[in-house]
Design a protein around this nucleic acid. Structure first.
Length: 1018
RNA sequence: GCUCGAGUGGCGGAAUUGGUAGACGCGCUGGAUUCAAAAUCCAGUUUCUUCGGAAGUGCGGGUUCGAUUCCCGCCUCGAGUACCA
């Protein structure tokens, strides 16, 4: 009987499902282990071979841990709210819930074929009301909480109210909005309940704030930053305007320091931690206030002496280098800075306003892209230096960003390159305040070891001392204080979309009210269309039933809002990261209707031991999830501070795109080509750089080759460095070159007949008439991201069908290190497939050709040979080590070596093959189950114990020593391992081969490392 | 620009408390089997070579008996981030 993988795999997949083999229990004597994959968004395109890579790795690890005696939680689910389903709904009118359901079905079928050991009884879907009920509940908890910086934790808002009513808000060190005003206990108690609510909102961990969104009037929708290209919408190219909207925000910035510090506790890659550190962007420095010296006529005179740091009488700046304060020669404000219009002098008014208008026109992106050109305008106003009391000119310049710090900087040209460039450009003074620093060419940015000079009381001090001293002196003057700044902004939590979690919020007189827990979930309403309303409100505004009746606690028609118990509901929905920020905990207790996770379940499973997923979530999902975990921990709902202990980012599997082309020689005569005169060849062709041949007689370089798509025609632009030359362009592809990889065979030939039958051919070439397919075509390949639009997608279903899931699993691992990006090449899969066939043969007898007939299962109970046991134990050792190190590619190699050796030894003994079955089970579970049952075991191989490595089988008595001369290995010698250094040296030197390398002279030195190497220096 | 990572055969890759560079697989070449093909099996496959050998892990130095591995300086590619004061 041959290796019939289709039959075997279907059989065991059914067995696992029927027997609930992978169902995890929340109570067990065994130690727990939680392995989690980042759950997928079920897209309409289905899975390609790149998607399961991480799932296979985590599945191998989960199965391995089960063999090692752990109670393993290995669940899977769907991040099923999201944009694509909504966009599809806008186009087709199909309800996102329907398309999502269909997509999930397809995903499940595909996943099941690969043989994962998921506990599907714990499946979660973020778009499921039973699930998002708890997402809404967490939102309410955030609303009911504030952040106490004193205790460094989130606390109940009721505790804050108590503090306010007993001592006011002066002593409270809370994370809050910038505009809170001080009030006493008496004042608080005198507040109306509405005033109280207004003030509390400024402290809540989720709060309403005016924030800007990208609004596209033509599309009638809000766009994300990456949907905007050069200031216009990516789709359609319509203008986008910044529009202020009241939106929910999350006070994640309150957690900045903890999110930063706790990174040190995590077993994540350094690069990932680094990008979170950068994202949090901590900088330690000082807030300094420069009093304004002169307002223009008619305005109030500057209050230079007594202006408090928070007052409006000065310009507040944040600096990380207060030690360089004596180097300040000017100040720069962002053009948007609110003080600009107040302080500019009448003489400068025109110029300043023109500059503001000009920079407002430039998009953020433009401003950032254009780093080189230096622009700015003098406002005419001056500030007073806190120490020297000298006037400091105030400029505006768009190198200062309104969104960071205070939107203003104290310019120290000797110490900051941007200030330096600005000063040089506008001929502003530069004072050198560093000892022994040359600032004639560029700014000096050294810190450690720098000695400050020319700086009054800071002169002679080192960087660190000067820093402290400067802050101290500023504090004395009341013009500054030490301050730590974070780049991390509060996260906008509202989306003007349909397919997301509705907020459990209704509004009474404009103040938000939470719907009580017992009335959750607040389900998404039906709408007729998924676009914003004509008045520009979010899609939920299209619903006729979207108001809350506080009397019956139910959703009612919004036409009835004039009734005194009926109030409008929030129209926004939550962002994609809401549901994914806490899903790991729901898997622990997925069907609990009372709490989002029971204390017992959470305390048993704690948090995720191993998390595998893509690195694209480095600063989104992974940061938000840490934030919510910390919050829920603070409020006593969780016992852990972090969601994911260990994290591995799997690398992307790339596709090998195929380009088919017909070879035609075309000569283009270019008489006048200059850089300013791109040559245009207006024929529908494609060309790639590789196929350009230069005319060697002319000394020219092909500078650049541009291909642009204009009205479905490919236009070649050739830019040459010299103006007079003849370019010979060969090998022009005479039709759009991208070909679906599935029509290319392993020898890079176009499968012409199949290709002509394909939908791909018909849609692309059906109407074209300028080429003939019957001629010879060439195929070139290029490695790119795997994507439907590049026609390089390989479907795992096809691989399972043709080679089996076990082959797919092992091949994906064999491709290369898990964390590395690597190209997929279906041609290479035969190596792994042949290995499994060889493995199959080990367990089956091979009848001699004369006998004929089928192979049959034949494993002997005789004792195995010494060599076979050695091979087995070598393999146990290496494979176990490799799994622990997530080096799955090398463990597949090890299996291959093992099977090659056992085949050569004609090994068919149970003593070896039974442990081998368990060893390979995590990688190729179906074939392992088949062997396991044929070996006479009942039940699944999953329950088998992992084989134990025994040193004794590997003990050697001799070593094949490499003998090197000057470090170069020349030959080897088999010598006993217990031979002494001296004996080894003597034996080696006496060898004939050594003598030929030594010529006449004796060796200068002989290094003998017993058990390793002999090196002779000549 | 900054941060992180990586450069090894035709290709994917292996080897790091410094100790036989190229494991394993693909591809390729030759052979066996076959009417033939597929499948399978065997042998070879870093480069150069006067067939004795010699060189070789992006480049240039250094440390060492010995460097893919450690140190210094560069180059290239990839990922992330971007005027962060």
């Amino acid at each position: 009987m041959n290796y019939n993988f289709n039959e075997i795999e279907a059989k065991w997949q059914k067995y696992w499902a029927d027997n609930q083999t992978f169902k995890a229990s929340n109570t067990s004597e065994k130690p727990k282990y939680y392995v989690l994959d980042m759950f997928p968004y079920p897209s309409g395109a289905g899975l390609h071979v790149g998607h399961p890579l991480g799932y296979i790795a985590s599945d191998i690890y989960a199965r391995y841990k089960r063999h090692k005696g752990f109670n393993v939680l290995h669940p899977q689910g769907y991040d099923s709210f999201g944009l694509p389903a909504e966009q599809y709904a806008i186009q087709t009118g199909q309800h996102p819930a329907v398309t999502t359901e269909n997509n999930i079905k397809r995903y499940r079928e595909q996943l099941d074929k690969i043989g994962f050991s998921f506990d599907w009884s714990r499946e979660v879907r973020t778009s499921n009301p039973e699930y998002y009920k708890w997402t809404q509940w967490i939102f309410i908890q955030l609303f009911e909480s504030w952040y106490d910086h004193e205790q460094d934790k989130s606390r109940a808002i009721s505790e804050l109210e108590e503090i306010f009513s007993s001592e006011g808000n002066k002593k409270v060190k809370a994370a809050c909005d910038d505009d809170v005003e001080d009030f006493t206990a008496e004042a608080w108690n005198a507040f109306s309940s509405e005033e109280k609510q207004k003030n509390l909102l400024k402290y809540r961990l989720t709060y309403l704030a005016e924030t800007e969104v990208n609004w596209c009037p033509q599309l009638g929708t809000v766009l994300a930053n990456d949907e905007i290209v050069n200031g216009v919408s990516e789709r359609g190219g319509y203008p986008v305007v910044r529009k202020k909207m009241t939106q929910w925000s999350m006070r994640i910035s309150a957690f900045a320091e903890r999110l930063l510090q706790d990174l040190n506790k995590l077993d994540w890659t350094e690069s990932l931690k680094e990008s979170q550190r950068n994202w949090i962007g901590k900088s330690v420095g000082a807030m300094v206030e420069f009093p304004i010296l002169s307002f223009p006529e008619g305005e109030e005179k500057a209050k230079s002496e007594k202006a408090p740091p928070s007052g409006a009488g000065g310009i507040r700046v944040f600096t990380t280098r207060p030690d360089t304060i004596f180097g300040v020669t000017f100040m720069t404000l962002a053009p948007e800075h609110e003080l600009v219009k107040k302080i500019m002098t009448p003489e400068q008014k025109e110029e300043v306003e023109a500059y503001i208008a000009a920079s407002a026109k430039r998009s953020e992106r433009e401003r950032m892209a254009d780093v080189k050109s230096i622009t700015g305008v003098f406002t005419g106003a001056y500030a007073e230096h806190p120490f020297t009391k000298e006037p400091v000119p105030i400029w505006i310049g768009d190198y200062v960003l309104a969104g960071y710090g205070t939107g203003a900087v104290m310019a120290v040209p000797c110490g900051d390159q941007r200030d330096y460039d600005f000063a040089k450009h506008f001929d502003l003074p530069i004072i050198n305040i560093f000892e022994n620093a040359d600032i004639s060419e560029e700014a000096f940015s050294g810190k450690e070891g720098t000695v400050i000079a020319n700086s009054d009381f800071l002169s002679g001090l080192k960087y660190k001392e000067a820093l402290q001293k400067a802050i101290l002196e500023l504090e004395k003057l009341g013009l500054g204080y030490g301050k730590t700044n974070y780049r991390l902004r509060d996260a906008v939590f509202s989306r003007q979309r349909y397919w997301g979690e509705p907020f459990p919020v209704y509004y009474v007189n404009g103040m938000p009210q939470m719907i009580a827990k017992e009335h959750l979930p607040l389900k998404l309403p039906e709408v007729e269309k998924y676009l914003p309303t004509e008045t520009g409100e979010p899609p939920l505004g299209n619903s006729v039933d979207w108001a809350w009746d506080t009397k019956n606690n139910e959703v009612v028609a919004n036409s009835e809002t004039d009734h005194e118990t009926i109030f409008p509901l929030e129209l926004n929905t939550m962002p994609g990261w809401a549901g994914s920020s806490w899903y790991l905990f729901r898997y622990m207790d997925p069907h609990n209707e009372e709490v989002f996770v029971s204390k017992e379940a959470q305390q048993y499973w704690e948090n995720v031991d191993l998390y595998i997923g893509g690195s694209e979530h480095a600063t989104g999902h992974l940061l938000y999830s840490r934030f919510w975990t910390k919050f829920l921990k603070d409020r006593g709902y969780l016992s852990v501070e972090e969601p994911f202990k260990k994290l591995i980012n799997q690398g992307m599997i790339l596709g090998e795109s195929a380009f088919a082309f017909k070879v035609t020689d075309i000569f283009i005569k270019c008489d006048e080509i200059g850089l300013s005169h791109p040559f245009k060849l207006e024929v529908p062709v494609c060309i790639s750089d590789d196929y350009i041949e230069e005319n060697s007689k002319e000394d020219f370089v092909l500078k650049e080759l541009l291909i642009s798509n204009i009205e479905d025609k490919k236009i070649i632009n050739i830019l040459s460095e010299v103006s007079l030359s003849v370019i010979e362009v060969k090998y022009i592809e005479t039709f759009p070159a991208r070909i679906d990889v599935n029509y290319i065979d392993s020898h890079n030939n176009l499968k012409l007949n199949e290709f002509k039958e394909s939908q791909f051919y018909k849609s692309f070439f059906g109407k074209a008439s300028f080429y003939s397919l019957d001629e010879t075509f060439k195929v070139s390949r290029e490695v790119e991201k795997m994507s439907k639009s590049k026609y390089n997608v390989v479907n795992p279903d096809d691989i399972c069908e043709n080679y089996g899931a076990d082959t797919l699993r092992m091949y994906e691992m064999f491709l290369g290190p898990l964390e590395q990006a690597k190209p997929w090449n279906t041609a290479g899969i035969t190596g792994v497939h042949n290995f499994l066939k060889k493995l199959w043969k080990l367990y089956h007898s091979t009848p001699s050709p004369s006998e004929g007939g089928e192979n049959s299962f034949s494993v002997s109970d005789e004792p195995a040979s010494k060599d076979s046991l050695k091979t087995l134990h070598k393999t146990i050792k290496k494979v176990a080590e490799d799994i622990e190190n997530f080096s799955f590619n090398t463990s597949v190699s090890t299996f291959m070596i093992c099977v090659n050796e056992l085949s050569a030894q004609n090994c068919n003994q149970r003593e070896v093959l039974e442990p081998l079955t368990v060893l390979i089970a995590p990688y190729a579970p179906h074939i392992a189950e088949e062997f396991w049952s044929k070996l006479g075991n009942s039940g699944s191989v999953v329950t088998a114990e992992y084989p134990v490595y025994e040193e004794k089988f590997l003990v050697e008595s001799t070593k094949n020593y490499p003998i090197s001369f000057n470090g170069k290995m020349r030959f080897t010698m088999e010598l006993p391992l217990d031979m002494s250094k001296e004996e080894i040296e003597k034996t080696v030197l006496e060898d004939e081969r050594s003598k030929s390398y030594l010529s006449e002279a004796p060796p200068k030195k002989v290094i003998v490392v017993p058990g390793k190497i002999v090196n002779i220096v000549v």
